[in-house]
């Protein structure tokens, strides 16, 4: 029986975030929070693995209370258990602090054989979490995993395909192993009505900084984060280019070809 963990993040749908034209700040109000799209692929890979080999799929997220919604989405799509790590003290965490909180909490729920992550999040998008979680779980890591081929529970190994820059690698790794999942072969399933309904009232284990024994306050949230974001600014854009407006598409295109003649 495999003990499987899936790490998921709730993210703002960045495509819908607007910038206040006057203040230049982000308008987050009314922007829906969604399950990080690539995490749905990671979950699907985990659930398929459970269906083939037996086991439990636990989803874990660190985020605000609303992130429970992302966990319910995972429960509807085949996860068995859900853990929410929520505390003001976790805020402003970089990947080092986030990975610390997640692994410290996950260890309370046993040792995991396989850990599935998305390749990157929609908002922070560092893509660093997989490596740092693997480090803290003392697990092997197979990034860009596109197809899990076999789990050998007795031999404590897993084989999988990885999509690399120039081809597909087949690799073997010792358990425990952490994957970051490619979406190629793991299209998320659509939950049926029954599982969706069950997910609405399912129990979500919620932990804060005090309910994780031994958690070092110096390693969480802002104090535990060596990377900082001292400032943000709107992208600098230049003056508009030369707009071609000759009255008709035909004339515009003729003019364009004259203008780019020396480049061609």
């Amino acid at each position: 029986m495999l003990n499987i963990l899936v790490c998921v993040k709730q993210v703002p749908d960045v495509n819908l975030v607007k910038i206040d034209p006057v203040t230049g700040s982000l308008i987050r109000k009314g922007v829906p929070a969604i399950l990080n799209p690539l995490d749905a692929n990671a979950l699907e890979a985990a659930v398929q693995t459970k269906e083939q080999y037996g086991g439990t799929v636990t989803c874990i997220t660190m985020g605000p209370d609303q992130a429970a919604e992302a966990l319910r989405e995972c429960l509807a799509a085949g996860a068995d258990k859900a853990i929410l790590l929520s505390d003001r003290a976790f805020a402003n965490a970089d990947t080092l602090a986030t990975s610390y909180v997640i692994t410290s909490a996950a260890k309370l729920f046993g040792s995991f054989d396989l850990i599935f992550c998305g390749k990157e999040s929609l908002d922070g998008a560092t893509g660093q979490m997989g490596s740092q979680l693997a480090e803290r779980f003392d697990a092997s890591q197979l990034s860009s995993m596109s197809l899990l081929l076999a789990v050998d529970e007795a031999g404590k190994t897993v084989t999988a395909e990885r999509e690399l820059e120039k081809g597909v690698e087949t690799a073997e790794a010792k358990l425990p192993c952490l994957f970051t999942v490619e979406k190629t072969n793991y299209r998320p399933r659509i939950p049926n009505l029954k599982s969706w309904k069950a997910s609405r009232t399912a129990e979500i284990t919620t932990l804060n900084s005090l309910s994780i024994p031994g958690l070092d306050p110096a390693q969480i949230g802002d104090p535990g984060s060596p990377t900082k974001v001292p400032r943000t600014y709107p992208p600098v854009v230049g003056e508009s280019g030369h707009m071609i407006d000759e009255g008709s598409t035909e004339k515009n295109v003729d003019t364009l070809f004259e203008l780019i003649a020396d480049v061609l």
């Binding site: 960045v14 900082k228 943000t232 709107p234």
Partner: peptide, 15 residues
Amino acid sequence: PAVGGKMMAVITVPV
């Protein structure tokens, strides 16, 4: 670039 390119973010490791 951050937030889908709507902002630029400055990241530092100050300590």
